[in-house]
Design a protein around this nucleic acid. Structure first.
Length: 485
DNA sequence: TGACATT
């Protein structure tokens, strides 16, 4: 009964999150009541209201709820496609207190005309899940510290709903944890008191306590890491979701594919399984100083470059790039670049940066032509260990083979592959090595299985800046420059 | 600067 209502609510909320076409006619002459009105408390609670008669819209409901305080936002849920009233709403008061009053007074207490069941008024699922309002990320823990130790550390600041130390596949701590308080205020207090307050034995810097990333932020962070680690100079690094570079876009697309392939953790209604948490942890930690990828740990041997320290399901891409990060020495400039995601170039203003990147113009065009088909093979190639290793040096059909010059010295086959993975199905990729020195010759080949992918890659990557160089990406010259006769 | 599937 109440169960049913809840799961229904969840479904409805999920539907709400799906893209919906612009409302057509049926929502009435009034603008939908979703416009935020005034300001709300930082810790305001978004309420889910269920068991509303379908003939009542926002303006009909307003008086009922207004008696508990000023309404910030009230939105009746409608079917995204039919625009049909779904019999429930989201309600946010300006004051947190009003929400509590309304819940107390109304939830299960009153039945609206025509309804078989009493009205439901309770915090929306989004209030307890997915949001970053009371969940903390804790980094720089001692790897010996267990959930109990973390609890002990955080208990003084409030009621803890959940505490999870992130662990690797072998069960060893990753030196970080999630701690969920019962309220935003408690979480905030813990941040103030604990962040940077102490350095755990064995940790490389002081304790990190911050609100956990939302899914969006996590995705963005990962994208930025990858982009940053590639040393791409792009002003979009600080502008969330600004579709600046075709490459960033491709990465985003690819990640979406990866994420949805590996499980439904993007779906707000689905609780993370411990397994997912571990995978997410492994990935999202990359940007933090505590990561296994950080130069502190044993990544200083060239053989590790690009050969994913974590040959996992979720993050071969990330790891592959991450492998490029720590340059053992001899490339201070690049190291700087990769570490902070910016190119140490005289030109760092967005304007100049843009002019440096012919490839960045026409992003929309790129987006439009980015074929869905090109994404699909990625989904296949990602979760499986890449079978690319053996099939080197295979040329694709004419028009599918790229010649790439000005590769960073450190780029190996893996990095090359991963850099071009977003654009299509790669048949082979090869960085040429000087056989005497075993050093890269800074050029290589990538072959796609279709000419469109090759063209897309050229569009996006030719002129692409990595470190101090800009890539040259062209079609490989046809095999026989002469003629068959 | 360099330059098109190598030993």
């Amino acid at each position: 009964m109440a169960r049913l209502t809840e799961s229904e609510a969840r479904r409805q909320q999920q539907q709400l999150l799906q893209p919906r076409p612009s409302p057509v006619g049926s929502s009435g002459p009034e603008p939908p009541g979703g416009q935020p009105d005034g300001t709300k408390d930082l810790d305001a609670i978004k309420l889910f209201v269920g068991q509303i008669p379908r003939n009542l819209d926002e303006k009909d409901l307003k008086p009922l709820f207004e008696q508990f305080g000023r309404i910030y936002e009230l939105t009746v849920l409608k079917d995204p496609y039919t625009g049909m009233h779904k019999g429930c709403a989201f309600l946010t008061y300006c004051a947190r207190d009003s929400a509590i009053k309304a819940q107390t007074a109304l939830h299960e207490q009153k039945t609206l005309p025509g309804m078989a069941r009493p009205i439901q008024v309770k915090p929306a699922d989004s209030e307890s899940r997915g949001g970053r309002d009371r969940k903390l990320f804790v980094g720089m823990l001692n790897k010996q510290q267990s959930e109990e130790d973390v609890l002990r550390l955080f208990q003084p600041f409030g009621v803890i709903d959940e505490c999870t130390v992130l662990r690797g596949p072998d069960g060893s701590s990753k030196g970080c944890a999630f701690v969920k308080f019962s309220s935003h205020t408690e979480a905030q207090a813990a941040i103030h008191a604990l962040h940077g307050s102490q350095t755990m034995p064995g940790a490389s810097s002081s304790l990190v306590v911050k609100f956990a990333d939302t899914d969006k932020e996590r995705t963005l962070r990962r994208m930025q890491q990858m982009v940053g680690q590639l040393g791409i100079l792009t002003p979009s690094l600080t502008l969330p979701f600004s579709p600046y570079s075709a490459y960033a876009q491709a990465l985003m697309q690819q990640q979406t594919t990866v994420l949805s392939t590996s499980g439904s953790y993007l779906s707000p209604g689905v609780a993370f399984s411990p397994c997912h948490i571990q995978q997410i942890g492994a990935v999202s930690l990359n940007g933090l100083p505590a990561t296994p990828i950080a130069p502190a740990s044993g990544l200083h041997s060239p053989p590790l470059l690009g050969t994913t320290a974590v040959p996992g399901l979720v993050a071969p891409i990330t790891n592959g790039f991450a492998g490029v990060v720590p340059f053992p020495g001899g490339h201070p400039a690049l190291e700087t670049v990769y570490a902070n995601g910016l190119v140490p170039y005289p030109a760092q203003s967005p304007t100049v940066a843009e002019t440096l990147h012919p490839a960045f113009s026409g992003v929309q065009q790129y987006t439009a032509m980015y074929p869905t088909a090109a994404i699909t093979p990625i989904a296949h190639s990602v979760p499986q260990p890449p079978p690319l290793l053996q099939q080197q040096q295979r040329e694709g059909p004419e028009g599918c083979n790229l010649f790439i010059y000005h590769l960073p010295q450190e780029f190996g086959d893996t990095e090359l592959t991963q850099m071009f993975l977003p654009f299509g199905n790669i048949i082979s990729s090869k960085v040429f090595m000087d056989r005497a020195t075993n050093q890269s010759k800074c050029f290589g080949f990538v072959s796609f299985d279709n000419p469109a992918s090759a063209q897309t890659a050229i569009q996006a990557m030719n002129g692409f800046q990595i470190g101090m160089k800009r890539l040259k990406v062209q079609l490989k010259r046809p095999k026989d420059p002469g003629h068959p006769y």
